[in-house]
Computed example of a mutant assay.
Amino acid sequence: MTPPTIYLDYNATTRLDEEVLQAMLPFFTEYYQNPGSSHLAGLTVNELIENACWQVADFIGGKPDEMVFTSGATESINLAVRGISNGKRDHLITLCTEHKAVLDTVTDHAVKNNLACSILPVQNDGLIDWERFEEAITDQTLLVSIMLVNNETGTIQNIKKISEMVHAKGAFLLCDATQAVGKIPVDVHELGIDLMAFSAHKFYGPKGVGGLYISKSVRKYLEAQITGGGQQKNRRSGTLNVPGIIGMAKACEIANKRMDHDATYVKSLRGHLENKLLEIEGTAVNGSVEHRIFNTSNILFKNVFSEQMILSLQHISVSSGSACSSVTTEPSHVLKGLGLNDEDALCSLRFSLGKGNTKEEIDVAVQRISGLVTQFRKE
């Protein structure tokens, strides 16, 4: 009999919440009509979509007319980076520890459009280097893209302070909040964010749907990247993913009710996991311990390659970094950005926990990992 999987990779994706599934099901059958249709059935679905839009926007502190639904955070980031222009400024800034969805998009866009691009280093704990950042922003800076929560280390950046510095130079701030929305309170107005990307499947919603918050101040500078049909006020054409949007709205509703409870529960599990694993000789936490999200722990296991560990753990799901390259022979660019050498970066594992985990699972995982570390160091 195959043992059940112990899933410790919630930053990669989450299991669809049962309540979310039930909310979505009628939109595959009873309410299957196109919300763009002018007949009564279509108008009914459109009204339900508008309600969902209000719910999602309110969850992040925005307004319905500031929301664009996309296929996920990667598309949202592409729309923000490739779509923004004021015809005067030509400088982009981001950090070396951003997700590849940002780094690849920013660098590609800069090369193709002859824009200046600054990819800034971070401190050894993953937090922004304020001196380097202040030096980099100029009157020619158009867009700064910095994530709220790092997907590999869980490091939380001071987005409010960053936004104040960005706006002081007349630039715009794009924030990849994919690992934050649904887990911790996020208010775009309080944080001073101009553009914010997020995905539903990171907080127990469906895959294939996400959003881009677009503040009124940046709206006129943003050009659509998907055209044809004029949906969503010409900001992103194409028939809406109705079940996905309904599911994301339901996931927001659940997260709003359970956020404090789930954070307390998961943080206690993360603490238990981390305390036990750090008892193993030659281990250390990568990134800031003080400024990080409650569910993530990135741990270095000296002289034990993560690829070997991941394959040997079998029914215990962990990763060596981003889900884009969960098992790789290449060292994580995030960990290298923190100053780790190639070998240590290749000997690090990311544990990301969720509300479905139990203390019993953590104990099993710790025991298995401890045994493998001992075994591999002897070989």
Rank of each mutant, 00 (worst) to 15 (best):
P64V: 05
I316T: 12
N256D: 13
V209Q: 04
T107K: 13
P185N: 12
S320L: 02
S325V: 06
Q22E: 15
Y213M: 07
K216Y: 13
M196Q: 11
R82H: 11
S370H: 14
L95W: 02
F301K: 06
S320W: 01
N86M: 04
E131A: 07
T70V: 14
L148M: 14
E50P: 01
A323Q: 12
V186P: 07
A200P: 04
T94I: 08
A41N: 13
T374V: 13
G356R: 13
G271C: 10
S320T: 10
L95K: 09
L21I: 10
R235W: 10
S163A: 15
L79F: 08
K216P: 03
Q140Y: 05
T358N: 03
N34P: 05
N113A: 10
L349A: 03
E50Y: 01
L21Q: 14
R132E: 14
S145L: 15
N341S: 07
P121R: 04
N86L: 01
R236L: 14
T141Y: 00
L40N: 12
E379K: 10
R292E: 03
I137D: 04
K169F: 09
L311M: 12
E253K: 08
V68Y: 00
A323H: 13
M248I: 05
Y204H: 12
V111F: 11
R132M: 10
T138F: 10
L269M: 10
L127N: 08
K112W: 08
G271E: 15
E223I: 13
A224L: 10
L240N: 01
K276S: 15
G61C: 02
K169N: 07
T264G: 08
V45D: 00
G182D: 03
V149D: 02
N295Y: 14
L173C: 07
R368K: 15
N158H: 13
M147L: 14
F376S: 01
I146C: 01
G282D: 14
A171T: 07
V242C: 10
G354L: 08
L8R: 11
C117F: 07
L174D: 02
N341W: 06
I60G: 02
L127Y: 03
G244N: 07
I246F: 10
L313F: 06
F376K: 08
I137E: 05
E131Q: 12
K112V: 06
S352M: 06
S348E: 05
N86H: 09
V266I: 15
K336R: 14
F172T: 03
D194H: 04
G83P: 06
K302L: 11
D194G: 03
L25D: 00
H201Y: 14
S85M: 04
L300C: 11
S312A: 15
F69G: 02
E30L: 13
K160N: 12
R15D: 13
N357W: 10
E66T: 04
L8N: 03
S38Y: 13
K359I: 11
P35T: 00
E360S: 11
L173K: 09
G87P: 01
A171G: 03
F294K: 09
A323Y: 07
I156R: 13
D125P: 01
C252P: 08
G72A: 04
L115T: 03
P185W: 08
L16Q: 02
G210K: 02
G271D: 15
R219M: 14
D58S: 15
T283Y: 08
T153P: 05
E361H: 12
N295G: 04
N150K: 05
A284Y: 11
S85R: 10
L240T: 00
M259G: 01
K359A: 14
I193Q: 12
M259A: 00
S352Y: 02
K88P: 00
L313Y: 04
